[in-house]
Every structure is written in C-alpha cells, then in structure tokens.
Design a protein around this nucleic acid. Structure first.
Lengths: 244, 244
DNA sequence: GTATCATCAATGGTCAAACCATTATAATAA
DNA sequence: TTATTATAATGGTTTGACCATTGATGATAC
C-alpha cells in the first residue's frame, strides 16, 4: 500500500489548508488582502501564535506576502516561479547539483523549447524576436561596454522563445534556471567582443530556424548556443580558480 | 542596480538563516536532531513563539522534520525532491499549467535524458536496464491483471535512465513530474494488452538505442513513447468527460 | 526470568494577554 | 498650500502557563 501517514492533528496545518484552498480556488484573488491576524484568529477560533505559524508557511510557499503598518497584512500573491527558483537554489547550495549539471539541464530544455517554438511561432512572434535581436545588435555594436545589456537581451530572447513555445511550465522552469545561473554568468562570464559577435550570430540563426519552422535546426542550434556559453564559463572559472 | 529590498528585521528570519546555513554547510548532518525548542530559545535569545515560526519555515522547506513525544524534536532531513514535487503540484492545482502541458514537458525531458544516457551508459547500466525490461516482460505476459505492476516497472526504467544520464537535476525533475502525473495515469490510463505490448516494444527499442549509443534514436523514441502514453490518456479522458 | 502494564518525564502543540515597531492617514501648525 | 505631528491599525515579540504525545522506566503478575 502507499498511503501517507495520517496527518498528526496540527491546527496550523488545517488553517494553512483552508487558506490555501481559498487562494487556489480563486475565492480570494491575487492582490487582495486577508483579514488582520486578530480577525483571522476569531474566524478560525485559534490563538495568534498558531495562526502566525500558518501564515509563515503560506508566506514560505509564496502564496502570500506580509506587509507592515497600517493597511499591512497578508496580501495574496500571483502564482509564480519564485518557489521553484528557490528550490533550485537550495539544491545548488547543498551541493547536490553543480553548475555543470545546471548548464547541462538548461541545454536540454532550451533545445526542447526552441523545437516547440519552431512548430508554433506566429508571424507576430517572429517580428517580436527580430525586434529583440535588433536591440542585441545595438549593444553588440557598442563593444564590451554593452556586455551586460547584451546578456540581458540574450535572456529576454530565450524567455520570449519559451513563451512562444506555449507551455507555461517551460517558462517557469527556464526562469528558475536563469535566476540561478545568472549569478555565475556575472562572476565568470566577462568576455570580449569576439564572443559577443559569435553569440549574436547564434541568436540570429536560432531565430531564423524558428521562423522557417525548422524544428531540428532550431533545437540543435539552441542547445549548441547554451553549451558554448557554458564552455566559456568553465574556461574562465579555471583561469580564476586554477586548481581546486 | 539589482539589490533586493533590505530585509525587514524579523528575528525568525535570522534564526531560519542561521539554522539553514548550519544544515547546508553540513555542520549538522542528515538524521541528527536539533536541540529542543526551549533550548534553542536560550541559544538564540528569543521567545518560543518566534522560534517556532522559524521551525515552521524550515519544515516547509523540507530541511527538517518534527517528531512528537519524548525523543521528539527537529530532525534534519536529506536533501530531496519533495519540495519541487509539491511546487509542481501547486502549479497544477492553481490551473496555471494543465496536464497536457506537463505531459509535453515530460516529452522533452525524457528525450534529453535518453540522449545523455545513450552517451554515457556503461555495460553494467545496460545489464540493469535489461533486467528491468525482463520484469516488465513478466507482467506483460500476465495480461491486464499485471497492468499496474507494468506501469510501475515502466517508471522504474525511466528513473534508471535518468540516473544513467548522470545529472541529478534530471532525476529530481523527472521524479517530480512522475509524482504529479501518476495520479492521472491511475485515473485515465486503464488500457488493454494491445497497448501494453506496444509500450513494451517501445521500451525495448529505447534501451537498445541506449546500448548502441545511438543518441538521436534514443531521444526520439523516448519522446515518442511518452507522447503515445499521453495520447492514450487524452483519449480516455475525453471518453469519460465528453464535453468540458 | 519474562511479559505486560502503569507511571513519568521530555518534548512539541496551543492558548492568552500584554507590549513594541512600523506605517498610512488624519489632524494640526506654519 | 505645505510641512509636521499625532493617531490608530497592523504585524512582531515576549512571557508563562497548560495540554497532548510518546519513549523509557519501573512495578506487577505470571
């Protein structure tokens, strides 16, 4: 059998479940405020300490956000990817997964996403992508000073491709990965105009493949693009930390 | 600039961070027990209520597990994928992502994983896979009565392939996906011997491709295999819920 | 001696009432 | 009008008490 252990009766758990249901069933909408703690205590017939334990859990789940002062309280948050980003971060910090693992995972995901985008991109999507590419071109022209802007646009393009793929799960997962990999890019990825040129060409090719509906080309080019970035980073890393 | 808002001084946050650091730096090992609440209060110079709010957060993060009674207390847990599974479940419940999205995502991931496995499988890995395949064969032979066992072995094979791929992130992600998709399979996926035969053949082909190091074949067959399952499910679903 | 049962103490779970800290808003002064 | 101050709503924290669960210990019966 496969039952979970019957829950030990913890009042705050029950409170969490009730509020969680209300939020997930959209009985309370994003941006709205829950009643004040002391009111909730009366509603749930519980003490403030117990209620606050429930609020901590909901806050940790990113379902609510607590604000201070008058008009403060528990505000319902939008469903978003923050939670997953933090989970990834924890796995990395606990050294269960390494940067190399994360990069490899991203390689696979970006490939899948590009393939779907090639299947599904509308003409409007294509125009949007070329618009972003033009911006990247501007930053590229301004040389190494435009590097950080270039990276930002690069990420925007990848996010846009994920959106075009039409599967919100990919958007969540990729934004988590980006959040967690970004730190390393900032630290290890200070490259010259040469690499920027190369990445710009890559982006152009990926977008072109998507435009023409060439699934395989889009997928393999996106994977290769990510792999290239990772290799730059590994190389830089080794220069900075020669032996470890 | 990219700084986060300076943290409002919440004592329990500070307590969470200190304990979290101790756990992630392995100053406290998995399975060990933190001091009792009342002792921790003295150590952190805080009240029990505040300390318990911190414990709730750590519990929600799956870093600790609380047990009751004598010898009870906060036990440090293994890092695992539970958290991500729950996040996925929440995204599904909040109807941000649908079953179809999850299945499509799985399709991409299983493809990537099979590709990596084809690159990296050792002869021992191959033997293990064929061992699992033989078990699947047994259940297949016992007809529809062996169906649920067959599905279980099917999942074991996929998990094993993820392990062979050598990237723990894939193992985490896939086990989360499995956890969340399993429920639907149980509900919608009661198929006959015909489909079981077909799935068995698929598994054999995937494993063979991995054995021969044929990346592309392994990847596309794994994707196709998952897609087939999803289509069965969609069909069943429509029969049960004709219009919705 | 062994097995069963009752008691006890350690530990988490809950409650209640008070006070502090932060902040939007209203009242007041310039 | 504008700047300052007071007020009150709301979250953050403390204290101390009591309840509930559970493993260990020792008493009792066989």
């Amino acid at each position: 059998m496969n039952f979970k252990k019957a829950k030990q009766n913890r009042i705050f758990q029950d409170v969490v479940e009730q509020i969680e249901m209300a939020i997930l069933d959209a009985r309370i909408g994003a941006g709205e405020r829950l009643p004040a703690e002391r009111e909730l205590c009366e509603m749930f017939q519980t003490s403030r300490g117990t209620l606050r334990e429930a609020l901590r859990i909901l806050e940790q789940k990113s379902l609510i956000e607590i604000r201070l002062g008058v008009n403060g309280g528990a505000y319902v948050k939008d469903a978003n990817a923050e939670l997953m980003a933090e989970n990834l971060a924890m796995l990395i910090r606990s050294q269960t997964i390494s940067l190399a693992h994360l990069a490899e995972f991203r390689e696979g995901v970006e490939g899948s996403v590009a393939r779907l985008a090639a299947q599904r991109a509308s003409s409007v999507d294509i125009i949007k992508l070329y618009g972003l590419l033009a911006k990247a071109d501007d930053f590229r022209k301004s040389g190494t000073s435009g590097w950080s802007d270039f990276v930002r646009i690069d990420e925007r393009i990848h996010t846009e491709i994920a959106r075009i793929a039409g599967n919100p799960l990919y958007v969540f997962i990729l934004s988590s990965v980006h959040d967690n990999i970004q730190r390393y890019y900032d630290t290890f990825l200070r490259v010259g105009t040469e690499e920027m040129e190369e990445n710009y060409r890559d982006l152009g090719q990926i977008i072109e493949a998507i435009k023409n509906g060439e699934e395989e080309a889009a997928s393999s080019r996106a994977s290769e693009h990510v792999r290239k970035f990772s290799r730059y980073m590994e190389r830089k890393k080794r220069k900075i930390i020669p032996i470890q």
